[in-house]
């Protein structure tokens, strides 16, 4: 289990992290979200011991030092490999730095290239691969040694939907194998789909923390999807409605300032008769992200 307790980090006068705490259990996926500059990469750098910080970070109750490095798979935010090496040399070199013998890794390379649908040969130079294929080779380097702790910084950025699905599948396989996985993303759909829990950072502080369901529920069921023949203007006149968005013909999304108003609105709209759709839900992660990102610090 990865445990982070009250970590803080300053760069001169800039407070990059302040009392950040969370944990990720084995077989759990955690999403780390926040706007650019919120402190996600600094959190990852702290976990990887790239910088000194105040607080405690442990992996299975051990400080994260070199012996633990072998259990970590890390994919940085920007992609970068050694362009003059071949695909095989690159994978083997990085795997050897994770204490994996070359003779164990070499026979696996073809399977991994196939699994990630890398277009090219293992004898090709990295620089001859397309950007997308280089990204996939980097993912292979991150995962080939079967890490127990996987840290992925923006893993979906730049991937097309097909490759994003391949990555999702790889993440879920690693989870099934018991790895603790933490990834950052600006795509809330991916977070919602994959994560067991999430942490949202703003200006280096944790502003949301919990399972995806808990976080969403904590915002109340302030969102109603309704299919009705009422007009937008009529809907806006209902009590506690703060916003009405038309999604499709006769389908609207209503935002409430009080979730308890839902029952009264239901009665008003149905008048005791059949209605095609009425669903009262908590806000989506995307909406929560926009809402929280826009708030000012207390």
């Amino acid at each position: 289990m990865l445990k982070i307790q009250d970590i803080s980090k300053n760069f001169g006068s800039l407070q990059a992290l302040k009392d950040v705490s969370f944990d990720v259990a084995d077989g759990q996926i955690m999403g780390l979200i926040g706007q650019n500059g919120a402190g996600k990469s600094t959190t990852f750098h702290s976990i990887l011991n790239f910088l000194n910080y105040q607080g405690t970070i442990t992996w299975n109750d051990q400080a994260i030092t070199e012996p633990v490095f072998d259990e970590i798979g890390y994919l940085p935010e920007e992609r970068s490999l050694m362009p003059k090496l071949t695909v095989e040399q690159q994978i083997v070199y990085l795997a050897r730095l994770k204490n994996q013998p070359a003779k164990k890794i070499r026979p696996q390379i073809d399977n991994w290239l196939e699994r990630f649908a890398v277009k090219g040969n293992k004898k090709d130079k990295i620089k001859s691969l397309s950007k997308g294929n280089q990204q996939k080779v980097q993912l292979i380097c991150t995962l080939i040694h079967n890490p127990k702790l996987i840290i992925l910084d923006e893993p979906f950025s730049g991937l097309d939907p097909v490759n994003a699905d391949l990555l999702k599948q790889a993440i879920l396989t690693a989870k099934e194998q018991g790895a603790a996985i933490i990834f950052s993303s600006h795509d809330m759909e991916n977070v919602e789909e994959l994560c067991d829990k999430l942490v949202m950072l703003r200006n280096g502080q944790v502003i949301l923390h919990g399972t995806v369901r808990e976080v969403r529920q904590s915002f109340g069921k302030t969102r109603i999807l309704v299919t009705t023949n009422w007009t937008k203007e009529q809907l806006e006149k209902l009590p506690h409605i703060i916003k009405v968005e038309r999604h499709e013909e006769q389908r609207y999304l209503l935002s409430l300032d009080d979730e308890t108003a839902g029952e009264a609105i239901f009665d008003e709209l149905t008048q005791g008769k059949y209605i095609e759709e009425f669903s009262q839900q908590p806000p989506t992660l995307d909406e929560i992200f926009r809402l929280k990102a826009g708030e000012k610090d207390e």
Binding site: H45, L48, F50, Y74, S80
Partner: peptide, 16 residues
């Protein structure tokens, strides 16, 4: 400043 350094430093110490 390349990210390969981050990958390498997540595998061995910078001193080594």
């Amino acid at each position: 400043g390349t990210k390969i350094m981050e990958i390498i430093f997540s595998s061995t110490t910078a001193f080594k």
